[in-house]
Amino acid sequence: MVMWRALVQRELQLLGRQKADWLNPLVFFLLVLSLFPLGIGPEPGMLKQIAPGLVWIAALLSVLLSAERLFKDDYRYGVIEQLVARRQGLFSYVTAKICCHWLSTGVPLVLVSPLIAVLLGLDWQSWQVLLVTLLLGTPVLSLLSVLGAALTMAADKGGILQALIILPLYIPLLIFASGAMEAAATALPYTGQLAVLVAFLLFALALVPLAVRQALRMNVG
């Protein structure tokens, strides 16, 4: 626990020093969201209808963007290599990375959700559902993106490759998160979708950190 706290502290220190790492994805998210009305047209009815998919695709892109460089520095400066040789701290390091990644990219998305609601003309009820799906879905998004970053850590080319790997895995989340919002918009029950999101979250929480640790080992081995 002492170790884990020290590792989280280190991640936060790094985020404090490299503010672009978490500010850029947030700006990117808002930028993408504001491009859509410009491209499709500003009719509130239309925006309201496409809002669920829109928010979740923009969220995916921005989280993916933020994860790309997640392990690159630590890999380049030999930190990962020595952690893998050391074995013990590696799992704590992975979980600390995941937590801090969510804190720095998922939580800001949750916090700007009222702004999204205003931009896309969502009502009070829809905003609440958006908030809940973001709270449940962004951790899964972080887990998957961290996995993608870990798999491609030592690869010669990152960006697009990481997207190719992660996008298929992300489809269920997209379906159920936007499904919940659509159901709520048409006054249908949406607790089922939320329950599925909770299941995804628990499932990913149980398996992804192990896979990430394995991926890091392979990338230096």
Partner: peptide, 15 residues
């Protein structure tokens, strides 16, 4: 794509 993305082929296959 992932298997071909590493300069060290053995690593790419594992990942």
């Amino acid at each position: 794509a992932l298997s071909g993305a590493f300069s060290e082929a053995a690593r790419g296959i594992k990942v």
